[in-house]
Design a protein around this nucleic acid. Sequence first.
RNA 1: GUGAGUGUAGCUCAGUUUGGUUAGAGCGCCUGACUGUGGAUCAGGAGGUCGAGGGUUCAAAUCCCUUCACUCACCCCA
Length: 438
Amino acid sequence: MNKAEKLSVVSYRGTRDFYPEDMRIRSWIFDRMKETAMSFGYEEYDGPMLESFELYAAKSGEELVNEQLYHFFDRADRHVAIRPEMTPTVARMVAARINDLSRPIRWFSFPNLWRYEKPQRGRLREHWQFNVDILGSDSIGADQEIIEIAIQVMIRLGAGKNDFRIHISNRRMLTYFLHQILDLPEGIWGGVCRAIDKRSKIPHETFEEMLRELELTSHQISELGRYLSLSHQNIDQHPVSESDGYGELRQIWNGLSESGLDTFCTLDLSIVRGLDYYTGTVFEMYDLAPENRRALFGGGRYDNLVGLFSKDRLSGVGFGMGDVTVRDFLEIHGLIPNPEPPIQVHVALFNEELRRSSGAIASLLRSAGYRTTLQLDPVKLAKQFKWADSKSIPIVILQGPDEKKQNLVQVKNMLTHSQQVVSERDLVETVRQSLAGD
RNA sequence: GUGAGUGUAGCUCAGUUUGGUUAGAGCGCCUGACUGUGGAUCAGGAGGUCGAGGGUUCAAAUCCCUUCACUCACCCCA
């Protein structure tokens, strides 16, 4: 194989290599998420990365299936898809045990998901998504709990109330408004929703133009504008406050106020979410940093999640948080912590004769709970210390022939440059103190 | 899928407008000064078919075409 034929070292388009320095950030983020979900009593699950093509063809959006789904035929000619989202898998898993699972079902997962997209900021072909769902409860308390978890995750990641905001609305209320108040035919609701969804990104004239094309009167357009700008202070006076959807929204808002979480939230009636299956509460989290004004994640309540597989009806509410957008968020806000050094102690090796003794020291430190490496080759000490320094190892242990004769060891603190000679017996305690900064 | 920008050493980049001898800098890496000790200093060194392919030319990192990748904005979402 000549030089031109060597394989490329570049990872597949839209995917990432997680080198150790990336992996520990990812693990740090996932650990915070997991802690939060578990603190609310949620249980972790996972499913296969491959599902039957039909699972997505049935209910995921047309665009997703036709243009973004990775799919192929296996050796037995089964039509297989790589999961682009987790919801159908949860639905399938729940449906398979629908009579066996006590409700509500509180589950979370960290699936990697694939979509054939053109990669850009915040959007790749493979990403990991923190999925949290509560299934089998029609209680509005479930909606509130899910939003609370989303907020608590952000707090646990170090975000404050000036860093992000959760925009909340309700699909049922919007439907009531379009149907009962504006008296619009059902056929154009979808079009109106799309216009609403785009409103913040397009000029006001374009927004009105879209609505006129849907044959809304100028009165209806101005009423819609008024509706969209309602806040939790003045919504009570609006006729939409008589709807069931409003009742749900008000209940959630009150609940969030009681737990002091309303400072992280805002009522935003322009939130509709792109997905069709949402029926009640919908919400999106926005970054407040001016350079990153975008929705980081969203969720909501969907009815009849398991209807595809079962006669039973089961509703749920949940959200998905992408690791790409979350990491962007953390970087912008300076919230990624300096990681703990992966190695705490390095045991130097003076020469071959001392290998057994130095190895024993390393074993001793490991059983005391310290992440310890042992020098493999007795190269000159300058190199050994230099390596330890390049790995940010705070402590280096050295036992040369002189120390060995008296059962002593050198303990060097690389951060303070101080070094002390202690007996082998006192080694573990000395390391403990040195790491604690005493 | 549409549009724009960028590809030169491991990293950050200069050089491209006005083609011209062996393609540069800083940082990093390796070796030594320093044969029982890392961040400093000094002296050396390795590392590049200038993203790839083709064309124009006596001559291409530089001009032209194609292609790939990355970045950003649309679309859509996470």
